[in-house]
Write a protein that binds this DNA or RNA. Structure first.
Lengths: 117, 117
DNA sequence: CCTATATTCAACCAAATGGTTGACCAAACG
DNA sequence: CGTTTGGTCAACCATTTGGTTGAATATAGG
């Protein structure tokens, strides 16, 4: 990948992550692959809106979509976050992942985002 | 901090990081604290535009600004990235910081961003 | 074949974003 | 004092973003 493509993709990743609905979707996909309709279910917005969010996540490379029959399955692509995550780590030298703490944090943010939706 | 404030601040962080000019500014501030005018110097845009970018970085908590005389100094606040960084790490389970690789990466992105500016 | 389901598309809208310019204010300088 | 310097503010503009609705497409089921 060229340098420009690299920075461009980091733009897309961070922009994608800046929206709480999209972060919530990614968190849902941590659990399991999901169909578009099921992704949309917990949110109080139209299916078309969720479809747009998924397009943004896909263009950022954060998810992949595969159509089987009439159902389009969404699958998390966590490696896409790698470059951006490393970029951030360069600032804070944060300690390596505390998985338990992360799960607690995730739970709280997930609750909160669903409240908002 | 409440849950809503937490997610809100993550929004602000990721949105702030989605702009290549702002990321370049943060990278510059890794080296040293800087006055607003000096931050603006390498970019081909108005001082007012940079001032706006700095406001966004400040509201995200990523920098602090302190006025001494007529000069406003900008200081990196890397801890602000902590929550967002941990959020991301939860997806990839990246290995702990690889500083050398990061520096190579940073150099490439910095070059590229200055080209664009 | 007809209908229901899954998903996207297209047109539209309000609000946010990222930039400009020119006026403005405050501090430092001669 | 008057002028330069550092920085923000205000108004404006084009583009993007995040949502809506209604029509369109494609597959599945009876």
């Amino acid at each position: 990948m060229t340098q420009a493509q690299n920075a461009k993709s980091i733009d897309l990743i961070f922009a994608a992550l800046a929206d709480p609905t999209r972060r919530a979707i990614l968190e849902m996909l941590l659990e399991d692959d999901m169909a578009v309709t099921d992704v949309a279910e917990p949110f109080e917005m139209s299916l078309a809106a969720i479809s747009k969010h998924l397009t943004i996540l896909m263009r950022a490379g954060l998810i992949a979509q595969e159509k089987r029959g009439r159902v389009k399955w969404c699958k998390l692509q966590p490696d896409a976050m790698r470059a951006s995550s490393i970029w951030m780590q360069g600032f804070g030298q944060f300690e390596a992942l505390d998985l338990e703490g992360f799960e607690r944090f995730l739970e709280r943010e997930l609750d909160e985002t669903q409240d908002m939706a």
